[in-house]
Design a binder for these strands. Sequence first.
DNA 1: GCCAATCATCGATAG
DNA 2: GATGATTGGC
Length: 667
Amino acid sequence: MRLSDLNPGQQAAVTAPDGVQLVVAGAGTGKTRTLVHRVAWLVDEGVDPRDIVLLTFTRRAAREMLDRASAMVGDQAKAVRGGTFHSFAVSALRRHADALGYSRDFTVLDRADAEALVGLVRGEVGLGGRERRAPQRRTLLKLVSKQINTGRPLADLIDASYPQYLEFAPEIERLAVRYTERKREQNVMDFDDLLVRMVELLRDHPDRREHLARGVRYLLVDEYQDTNRLQAEITGLLSYLHGNLMVVGDEAQSIYGFRGADVRNILDFTELFPHAEVIRLEQNYRSVQPVLDLANGVLQSAAEGYGKVLFSERSSPERPELVTTYDEQEQASYLAQRVQERKAEGLDYRSQAVLFRSGYHSNLLEVELQRAGVAFRKFGGLKFVEASHVRDVFALLRVVANPRDVMAWVRILQWFAGLGAVTAERIAQKILDHPEHSLEPTPYRKRKYGPALAHLAQVLSAAAPLSDRPEALVAHLLEYYAPLLETLYEDHRKRVNDLKTLTELASKYTDLESLLAEVALDPPEQTEIDADPAEEDWLTLSTIHSAKGLEWAVVYVMQLGDGHFPTTHAVEDPDALEEERRLLYVAVTRARDALELVRPTFLRGRFGVQPTECALLDEIPAFHSKIARRDGQLRGASKTKPTEKHPDIAAAEARLAEFMRRFPRKG
DNA sequence: GCCAATCATCGATAG
DNA sequence: GATGATTGGC
């Protein structure tokens, strides 16, 4: 490895002596590069790679960094343990489950299952079927989760986000307690439990703490501004023994407030670790100055001053562009055409990315791209494993792995005619209370669904011995499930292909537990599954959250407009709007050479499709001098298809024309 | 008492 | 489009 490629700040971070360092690194200042070099440098210095732990925000980021480190110092760097806090916790918790009243075959509930379980408890604590409008299970889980991740009292959180539900505070308190109890009974953990139990393990079990911390000689944490208090606690507890900790982050890029992330973790870091060396990386190597001018403008408009100004030595005559289109359809057509134009000019799709606030914002664009034959992959939004029929198969896998998994049972049992939610829960509870019998169909023999249960029991008992061969296990279960699929879904023809994909997915694993944990913690993206592996040049579509830490030569930020980006909620809530601003900052700073902000004039609002402002853009100081304007209307429209007006807009215009005709202006 | 079909309401980001 | 309350049927 060569240190001469690095600037003095980066070198200081890479070669820092033992101890605690805080690396404050603005967007594009080579944060990832620095971490990669740090790992490589440590390995090069003779540190056992297995004693290095690199915690990142996604597993994708961890993999990428370790690959790059390996390229510098050889494959030994692959032995570095890397992943998210959650994935690190799963492996630690499996080994130490006994200390926490769990057994080591616990399963991980994803959000949908967690919500389903909250739904069961919801009825139990009296939050269902009343004339008073009680919060939905989704909202309830959000509240409980936020309480756990922030440590703030539930009543405060309700007051802040859902004041209309304050009258339910006592019931919600009870729900939180029951929910936790039931998860433990069922030997399942939701995402929050992974952190909570990890803290519990490290805090309350000194022997385990020492054992775990002994193996963490160097701890590196990326994206520290997006950690919550539990993660900060884990960071401190894991590194207490050797005292070698490096955290890296940028407070201006904090975009996970909704998940309980606390910027104070990074802002107050030196109070917690007074001996920490603070290293600042300020020079931006990524973007041209005009892009940074706009990024700086976005930060200036923030209520909380970050006092940060990015500068670059890369100049460009082109300012970022504000592209105005008529509506969403024209936006989609424009983008599809624009990426092709750039491709024709010699810029690969690989160097371009379209970013948006919410997963569904790209729906129309995806249709246009498909029509135009542009290969793309989408990151964020609905995942392959979230499809209902795929979840079905995973429910079968989960009861094989953990027969106490009530939510998996409840899902499976409701496949059968005449067996509804109430009976399903009753049977699942019975299995939980007498796990030695598992599914014993005899008591239900006289029921309509008796034979179906007998068949299921038979399939599952044959499945058990296949646990250490996931591929064979999936094949066995599919033999049972495939015929069922046809009766369960009218559109089963579309769904049946996914079953083959499932077998392929399973073939990558050697045991069932890691298959299930990985799929819960790092689900493969739908378009990765669909993509033609031979196609190497594809366009990236991504939510801004999923684009964090990445960069492209050209970036398009689409769907700018109140109610979309920023989202509905944020338009009224100043704190939420601040997070939207940081989100825009993250999006803008992904661009190396060129940036386009695309803004449809007519967007779907509360009263149908209507002209829409964009608070985020309007408040940027001297915005108009920082951007160039472009009309997104397609001139060479014959190349693609003609722009269609949104039906709502067409209808509104027709009504307007009718109105004008009947009430002609005088004079 | 439970199931299955029907109707109103409301939306995000992710491990 | 999903969630959850409601309603009619067994």
